[in-house]
Amino acid sequence: MPFDFYVTVAVQGVLTGLVYGLMALGLSVIFGVVRVVNFAHGEFAVVAMYLAFLGFAAFGLDPILAMLPIGLGFFGLGYLLQRHLINPFVGRPEHEQFILLVGLAIVLVNGLLMLFGPDTRHANLPYGFDSYEVANVLIDKVRVYAAAAALVVAACLFAFFRWSRTGMAIRACADNLLGAAIVGLDVKHLYALTFGLGMACVGAAGALMVVLADATPMLAPAFTLLAFTIVIVGGMGSMAGALVGGILIGVSEAFASFLVAPSAKSMFSFAILIAILALRPQGLLGRKP
């Protein structure tokens, strides 16, 4: 019996971790190409959570479907943000970008606080308590759906970067910015596209997150840190690394909540982060710098 219990906890952790991974993927893509650290990442995830919650509360729209319009909307938002707000800060010192995005994060999280207050919002899905039973292991249905959706989005992104011409052009910008500009790539446009794609990831992940956690503005800074931790653990610039890191952190959180205390779960994530930085600074799947 205890063994089945551990397997259950591990499976739940993996499924949650995939959604975390998708959120971190957004951050990784943006940093890998634009070289701007999106310190408002978790804040955007929580904005998406609220949008998904509102869609569910007002129209009964399933958050897993709401992922599509929210992701699209966030893509547009990200494109405009990069084009008009962040682009002038590309290549500037880190602390200047940091202030800009921290300012944005403060505006977002407190805007949510003004509009919705500090209370948690729970999307009560009709199948919220259903679960699958596979050989004595209980698996929440919502987690399976959310994880599958996250995997699909991540796969689309992989395919885009691997095979589409635009994706290749973006990779060219990341590899050699000067070279990309010389051969005539429109770097500004590609940067904005990349930021949009990263934002689409975080929008989709935020929508999925509604089925896993209750929405509250207080989650935002914790999500930003979570995304960072995952990206560094998995390896900055490695897309597969973000998913692997997400799974690792998801499993560690699940076990820490179960064996120690839910409030102590991120302590173990930070311990993993410190260990990775000391032993393998480039991350699990990262290339040596």
Partner: peptide, 22 residues
């Protein structure tokens, strides 16, 4: 009186300052 109002302006002020005098 809504909580967060002050902080929203504070965040906007930060963005404005770094925009004008980096």
């Amino acid at each position: 009186s809504a909580p967060g109002t002050k902080a929203v302006f504070y965040g906007l002020a930060l963005m404005a300052i770094v925009w004008v005098a980096p």
